[in-house]
Design a protein around this nucleic acid. Structure first.
Length: 803
RNA sequence: GCCGGUGUGGUGGAAUAGGCAGACACAAGGGACUUAAAAUCCCUCGCCGUAAAAAGCGUACCGGUUCGACCCCGGUCACCGGCACCA
């Protein structure tokens, strides 16, 4: 019989579905295992091979854990709100809901054709009102706790999407999604106070098993720094609050810099002798895009404020004050003390503007360059701090500032609050109304979900308003508080909203009364293993940790962290290592591969392609290699016609070794070497002859990778039950050893031969055999010398040291 | 500049509690089967060298530790990812 993968795969996908084979039930005796992958955005293009990599890898893990007897939750859903759907809808005059439905249907079919063992009863869709009811509910809870607030502020505005972006969504000064330039725009926006959770988001990284690069990237993004806030005086009487990480260098502060937007500048404007120049600089800075502001980084610009001086609180010295855009209004206090002797930027600025440079830490030459790498230095020119180390001085100055009431220790974060509103149609409506009398009022929970109105046009507007603002029927409503006329909030939520909690909904997706039941979340939480893309590290992954901590605080979830473990996969590149793209025409469609070679080949190849964490390039030839392997397995199975239940002596150790290797490799995300081991085992069994017991184990080990062919061969050989839910084979450590082995023989650390010996011989015997080996003996004779030392690594090698 | 990572045959990649570098596969070459092709099977396949061996060289580069280093340590270079005037 031929290996007819098309028929086999259709047959088994149907059986799995009909039997609900991969259903997970909440509760029970079995140990739970919650495996999660990032749900896709169902775009019109369909599933990409880039999706297939993490999905297939996690499917092998889920399948193996299920076979090991665990209760596995492995769900799938759709993150379906978002701009591409909306843009497609606008262009083709189809409602985004219809577009979404079509795309989801297509995605589901593609996912099923790959044979993933999802529990399809738990499928979710973020655009389903039954789902986004709870997204809105969480927003309301945040609003009630003061974590969601509206603020007018400069925001990132994507010129193409006509919509604001979160800081996390700006990449290289462009839009993360479409790449169009991002400009700054003053606009009133909904914000979420993620900064309130900054310390906890940082601290709790210690408690989770995330790969290091994810942790490092999140730590970087949160950007904690410690230092002090210090109140400087001014000759106009106002206090100037600055933040510094180097309070020890306070005596070296020779000038101050305020950001151009700093409130004191406006306050002082009337009294400034050069108000015109100052205003001109402010206007110039405001007109600069973020891109220009960073482009010009090397050349410092600024204007001195004439008519006011700062007063250094530790020595009473009057120092000049500048405004310059190298000081950011959004970080710290928007004002700094400049210590040119020990900060590169201050040094560059001081040189250009002729400010004094004072050395306060010995060790460098501050006339040549700022001495910044000075942790081990000793203080000078610093009054009572003189002769202290930098570390001692930091402590002493903070004590001093605190005592005198002119400053205190302060922690700062780079993390900013999350800009949460979007001026687009296809997102969750924000369940808020604006009432002239009562102000900003939350909808009553009983009014959730707040549905999107039907509209004729979803076109975004240039004036910064959402398309919803034009739907007066919908906008005009009554205030839930006073019953008077009120207007609905017309901005919608960003795509990251629905994905910030979706893993909770999988646990209990049919619940109409709660976001998730206590029973379900206590049983399934936290996610045991979450795999996803590195590109989400400071977006979705951080946001969802934040939401989860909030839900923990209000008692909805029992754990501080949503995910116990996080791994990440590398990209799949096109043939020759070039990025896949439509314009290059090198995009691989999984469906084409499945049609030509079958899902099992597709799955095997995507696992075999290389190191899971690294980028890998597609190779059509290598796909054929995996097909050949499955053909070999098929052909091998055809040679088996006995009813044997024990492994043969000949194959025993090979089988045990392979069970061991495959078992550990799957959980180490090393499916590539697991498959290599299975290829070797298949060759061994082909050479030695294969009995039913051996075939059975081979099929079980291969099943997580290529489940269809294994279920089919299992059935053809009359094994009991279904292979993909059979019990995972075990191995005996003692039987993983060969009775005879090859050992390397080195002389002075260089390989000179090998000996074939019984395993586990004692050192003396091995050394004797090695010395008397023909090749070695000849070598020793030729090169002379006495053996002065011998090293034996058991069952591996002998090293003879000769002088 | 800061943080993280990577560097191994023609190619994808194996091998790290320091112990035979190149598993497994792709490509290439040779052979068998075939009227022929496809498929399949067998052999070769790091460099250099040889009739064949042997010897020599080889995991980005330089150096160190060790009986022994792709692996550990110090330094250098290249590339990839993230952040970036964050005081």
């Amino acid at each position: 019989m031929k290996y007819d993968f098309t028929a086999i795969e259709a047959k088994w996908q149907k059986i799995w579905q009909e039997k609900n084979l991969y259903k997970s039930v909440t509760g029970g005796e079995k140990e739970k295992f919650y495996a999660l992958i990032e749900f896709p955005y169902p775009s019109g293009v369909g599933l990409h091979v880039g999706h297939a990599r993490p999905y297939t890898a996690m499917d092998t893990i889920a399948r193996k854990h299920r076979m090991m007897g665990q209760n596995v939750l492995f769900p799938m859903g759709y993150d379906a709100f978002g701009l591409p759907t909306e843009n497609y809808a606008i262009k083709n005059h189809i409602h985004p809901r219809i577009v979404t439905e079509t795309n989801v249907k297509n995605f589901r079919a593609q996912l099923q054709s790959l044979g993933y063992s999802f529990d399809w009863d738990r499928e979710i869709d973020t655009t389903d009102p039954k789902y986004f009811k709870w997204t809105q509910w969480i927003f309301l809870q945040m609003f009630k706790k003061g974590l969601a607030y509206k603020a007018k502020m400069p925001v990132n505005w994507c010129t193409s999407c006509k919509c604001v972006l979160a800081n996390e969504e700006v990449v290289d000064n462009g839009c993360e999604r479409c790449g169009a330039p991002v400009i700054r725009k003053e606009q009133s926006q909904w914000m979420l106070k993620i900064t309130e959770y900054a310390q906890r988001l940082l601290d709790d990284l210690d408690e989770v098993d995330f790969i290091d690069r994810v942790k490092a990237q999140q730590r970087n993004w949160i950007g904690r720094s410690t230092g002090a806030e210090v109140r400087f005086g001014s000759t106009l009487g106002d206090e100037i609050l600055i933040y510094t990480t180097r309070p020890d260098t306070l005596f070296g502060a020779t000038y101050m810099v305020l950001s151009p937007e700093h409130a004191l500048v406006a306050k002082w404007m009337d009294k400034l002798e050069n108000a015109e120049a100052v205003k001109a600089y402010q206007a110039e800075a405001a007109a600069k895009s973020d891109f220009e502001r960073t482009e010009l980084a090397k050349d410092k610009t600024g204007v001195m404020l004439m008519g006011v001086k700062g007063i250094n609180p530790v020595n009473g010295k009057e120092i000049p004050i500048f405004i310059s855009d190298y000081v950011l209004s959004t970080y710290g206090t928007g004002a700094i003390m400049a210590v040119p002797g020990h900060d590169d930027r201050d040094w560059a600025f001081a040189k250009k503007f002729g400010c004094d440079i004072i050395e306060v830490v010995k060790g460098g030459n501050v006339e040549e360059a700022a001495f910044t790498d000075c942790d081990t230095g000793v203080m000078v020119n610093s009054g009572f701090l003189n002769d202290m180390t930098v570390e001692e001085a930091k402590k002493a100055i903070i004590d001093f500032l605190t005592q005198k009431g002119i400053g205190e220790a302060k922690v700062n974060f780079k993390l900013r609050d999350w800009v949460f509103s979007r001026q687009r149609y296809w997102g969750e409506p924000i369940p808020i109304v604006h009432c002239e009398k009562c102000g900003t009022v939350a909808l009553d929970e009983s009014q959730l979900p707040l549905l999107l109105p039907e509209v004729e046009s979803y076109e975004p507007t240039d004036d910064g308003n959402s398309p919803l603002s034009a739907i007066t029927d919908w906008v005009n409503t009554t205030c839930p508080c006073c019953g008077g006329p009120a207007k609905r909030e017309t901005d919608t939520m960003p795509q990251w909203a629905g994905s910030s909690w979706y893993f909770l909904r999988y646990m209990d997706n049919h619940n109409d009364d709660d976001l998730v039941s206590k029973e379900a979340v206590n049983y399934w939480g936290p996610v045991d293993w979450y795999n996803g893309g590195m590109e989400h590290t400071t977006l979705h992954l951080l946001y969802s940790r934040f939401w989860h901590k909030f839900l923990y605080d209000i008692g909805v979830v029992p754990t501080k962290e949503p995910y116990a473990k996080r791994t990440s996969h590398g990209m799949i590149l096109g043939e020759g290592g070039i990025k896949m793209s439509k314009s290059r025409g090198n995009v691989i469609n999984p469906t084409d591969v499945i049609n030509e070679y079958g899902a099992d080949t597709m799955r095997s190849y995507i696992i075999f392609i290389g190191d899971f964490e690294k980028a890998a390039s597609w190779s059509s030839n290598a796909v054929k290699g995996c097909k050949r392997f499955l053909d070999k397995v098929w052909n091998l199975a055809e040679t088996v016609n006995d009813q044997e239940t024990e492994y043969s002596k000949k194959n025993e150790s090979a089988i045990h070794k392979t069970v061991k290797k495959v078992s550990s490799d799957i959980d180490a995300l090393k499916g590539n070497t697991a498959l290599a081991a299975l290829m070797s085992l298949t060759s061994t069994l082909s050479d030695n002859g294969c009995n039913a017991a051996e075939l059975k184990t081979l099929l079980q080990l291969l099943s997580p990778f290529a489940p269809h062919i294994c279920d089919e061969l299992w059935e053809l050989h009359g094994f009991e039950g279904i292979c993909s839910v059979s019990q995972w084979p075990t191995y005996d450590e003692a039987k993983c050893k060969d009775s005879e082995i090859d050992m390397a023989v080195q002389v002075n650390g260089k390989l000179r031969g090998t000996i074939h010996v019984e395993a586990d011989l004692d050192n003396e015997t091995v050394i004797e055999i090695a010395k008397n080996d023909e090749k070695i003996a000849r070598f020793l004779e030729k090169n002379g010398g006495n053996i002065v030392k011998t090293i034996v690594v058991k069952n591996k090698l002998v090293n003879l040291i000769v002088k």
